[in-house]
């Protein structure tokens, strides 16, 4: 177990969210996360990859909510990221919890999809694989310095349907009804990543939960505008803070023609989004969004909401 320092203010918040179960959450925050991979079926058949990895002695356990996701169970071997199979692009190293957004968005082949904050490209690669390298994906990121990693990861999986762009995500509001589906993996305070980033909660203060809120709301609004009527938008963060999750979705959904869609995946243990926080009530449909605490699936913490652009007047479907 690691010796991870967690600010008292965040411990109080954990108790406010989970009551007595907060101790379990805090315990899990102290343990490292299990390494996981996503098979690269754009390059090789799934059976072939699994056979080769098994023959090489890699013990893999299926991630229940993603057919391409596997946990690497070998604890005493060298890093699988330094193996021949990784060099030959048999798989991509990706946290099991970050396999969730693409599975919920579930893009079809031939769709036109936007990944609004794409770098370094884990979820873009997952989308491209699910679309079997058909249609088109705009993988956008505002940070120029993050594009080389995004580009390299697309080359690695062999995706030819990805177009990389560098725009402020808010600019997509000018592209009304352009995309069949949009993923907003929003910038956030990343409190759910404490098992990988031990320092993230050490000096945590309540105002940090608000620091990204304006941009989060803007990006989600922009995503909705850029989605075709009937299309889906997935909003995700690696934060457990209601201010960055339910509060954002609630504020944006109240001003847009969207419905909140249940975001459950088979095999994934999750909690419904909360409907009240700090004396603010959210729409009841917020329960259709999903909170994932580290102890639920032995992963990092995460939040996901799926919205459908209805094209109706300004009303949220309950």
């Amino acid at each position: 177990m690691a010796d991870i320092q967690i600010a008292d203010a965040w411990k109080r918040r954990a108790r406010a969210l989970l009551g007595n179960e907060a101790d379990t959450l805090l315990h899990y925050c102290q343990t490292p996360v299990q390494k996981s991979i996503r098979l690269n079926t754009l390059r090789y058949g799934k059976d072939h990859i699994l056979e080769q990895l098994a023959a090489a002695g890699w013990e893999l356990h299926s991630v229940p909510w993603c057919p391409l996701g596997y946990w690497v169970m070998n604890r005493t071997r060298e890093d699988i990221g330094r193996s021949v199979w990784h060099a030959l692009d048999y798989f991509y190293i990706q946290d099991a919890v970050s396999l969730i957004p693409a599975e919920i968005l579930a893009p079809k082949t031939q769709m036109c999809v936007l990944d609004m904050a794409a770098a370094p490209g884990s979820k873009t690669g997952h989308l491209a694989t699910m679309m079997q390298d058909t249609g088109g994906i705009v993988a956008n990121d505002v940070a120029l310095g993050r594009l080389p990693a995004l580009r390299a990861n697309m080359d690695k999986i062999g995706a030819t349907n990805v177009l990389v762009s560098q725009h402020d995500g808010r600019a997509f509001a000018q592209m009304r009804d352009a995309f069949d589906a949009v993923l907003v993996d929003a910038p956030c305070s990343a409190t759910g990543t404490v098992r990988k980033n031990p320092g993230v909660l050490e000096n945590w203060q309540p105002n940090q939960a608000q620091s990204h809120r304006k941009i989060q709301e803007s990006l989600l609004s922009s995503a909705i505008t850029a989605t075709k009527p009937g299309g889906f938008i997935v909003y995700a963060t690696c934060s457990l803070e209601p201010e960055e999750n339910e509060a954002v979705v609630d504020a944006v959904a109240r001003n847009n023609t969207v419905a909140l869609i249940p975001s459950h995946l088979s095999g994934l243990q999750s909690r419904p989004g909360i409907t009240e926080w700090n004396n603010c009530a959210f729409v009841n449909a917020m329960e259709r969004t999903v909170r994932i605490y580290p102890q639920d699936n032995n992963t990092q913490g995460f939040y996901v909401a799926c919205l459908q652009k209805t094209g109706d007047s300004y009303a949220i479907s309950e």
Binding site: Q110, C112, D133, T134, G135, G136, I137, V138, L147, R151, M154, D155, G158, A159, T160, N161, V162, L163, V164, S165, Q166, H167, M175, A178
Partner: peptide
């Protein structure tokens, strides 16, 4: 080399891209 459909879709919305395809 980029998928024809991907390139066409982007042409429709006049988006400036850094790279296309592989």
């Amino acid at each position: 080399a980029a998928r024809q459909l991907a390139a066409l879709a982007i042409e429709e919305i006049s988006l400036t891209v850094e790279t296309a395809g592989l």
